[in-house]
Amino acid sequence: MLPVDLPDAVRDALLAPLVDHHCHGVRRDDLSRAQFELLIGESRTPAPPGTTHFDTPLGAAIRRWCAPVLGLEPHVAPAVYLGRRQELGAGEVNRRLLQASGVVAFLVDTGLEAPDLLSAAEMGRHGGAAADEIVRLEQVEQDIADSAAVAVDYMDSLGEELVARAARAVGLKSIIAYRCGLDFDPSRPSRGSVIAAANRRLSDPRERLVDPILLRHLLWTAVDVARDRALPIQFHTGYGDADLDMSRADPAQMTGFIRALQPLGIPVVLLHCYPFHRQAAYLASVFPHVYVDVGLTLTHTAAGSARILDELLELVPFHKQLFSSDCYGLAEGCHLGAVYFRLGMAGALGRRVESGEWSAADAARVAHMAGSGNARRVYRL
């Protein structure tokens, strides 16, 4: 899979076990073609009549790299691939693809937990790896909103529940980019404004939280917990599904908040980032507590991900880059994230070694840091 002229030290570092620092559960049940295709793209809608989601970079990548793991030739037709998936069954497919990724630890965002998704522990068992939880803040808030009677109960219970959940986790995650954008007021909201907003929230708690005051309160409550427990906070930025307003997902727009957290020493992890990966690299280069990955981007850009990884390496400090697959629903996403991380890094590092810019030892060290070492340090694994 890796270039034949890659120095042995670099090859060994890239083929070493990875830490997938941000992923989700994959489906435990057998999927129809329609169900499978809905999980290929971020649109979450069927392809137009007469077309297929297999005609995407990700669809082609599945047929190229996942087919051999299931015992097929590369580039088989979609119907043949899906038929083999049905023949093997979801359990065997998940085991093969998760283990083929070479991931030694999964850090699982449990905010999308559902009966048809593997739990964090099951991801570990199927993948033959360790597994830990990343707590999604907005899911905790929804649980509290559903049960709180008055605003004061809401505020107290939110802090208590975050403390309890954080005790079993290795990190926290915010999707404020989806709810109100990253251009939010970075200041901590006043108690009075939170009480007023909480009263409005509790009048219709089943609605999705979009109130910027309560989202900021949730975030700052999480900051207090993260500081006390020395946990990082992940932020979705850049590429995502159709619920996202991309113009408000540029991580540079949360510079004020990042600056406010610097004295607290809380690691801020910017997820996915594309097409703002250069802005993310800048933030990581000027703020000591900021880290980046291009997770979800790897699978959805597929063969194009090598260029994106190379651009990230233009500026990002090497001790600030992490690997993730952001797989959700399909174990194919985990395997492909690992494949394209290794391929993209091999190209970027190999060119630097060939030009004499780096030594092979330098390139191997960078590969190790990005693949697992940085995540082990940031999440204290």
Score class of each variant (00 low, 15 high):
residue 309 L to V: 08
residue 349 L to T: 09
residue 356 G to V: 06
residue 285 S to Y: 04
residue 297 T to Q: 00
residue 283 L to K: 08
residue 292 V to C: 10
residue 341 F to N: 13
residue 333 G to C: 10
residue 320 K to N: 08
residue 308 I to C: 04
residue 294 V to R: 03
residue 360 A to E: 10
residue 357 E to C: 01
residue 329 G to M: 01
residue 297 T to F: 02
residue 340 Y to V: 13
residue 280 A to Q: 07
residue 325 S to R: 01
residue 320 K to M: 04
residue 322 L to K: 10
residue 366 V to S: 05
residue 331 A to W: 01
residue 322 L to F: 05
residue 301 T to I: 03
residue 337 G to S: 12
residue 357 E to W: 10
residue 295 G to D: 03
residue 363 A to Q: 04
residue 286 V to R: 09
residue 339 V to F: 09
residue 311 E to W: 00
residue 343 L to K: 15
residue 278 R to F: 07
residue 295 G to T: 10
residue 289 H to E: 12
residue 298 L to N: 04
residue 332 E to A: 07
residue 277 H to E: 14
residue 304 G to Q: 12
residue 301 T to F: 05
residue 314 E to C: 04
residue 312 L to W: 00
residue 295 G to V: 06
residue 277 H to K: 09
residue 310 D to K: 03
residue 313 L to V: 02
residue 361 A to Y: 00
residue 339 V to H: 10
residue 289 H to Q: 14
residue 324 S to T: 07
residue 364 A to K: 13
residue 335 H to C: 09
residue 365 R to S: 15
residue 309 L to S: 02
residue 342 R to S: 15
residue 318 F to L: 03
residue 338 A to W: 07
residue 306 A to Y: 02
residue 364 A to N: 06
residue 279 Q to H: 15
residue 329 G to K: 07
residue 345 M to C: 13
residue 303 A to L: 11
residue 348 A to M: 12
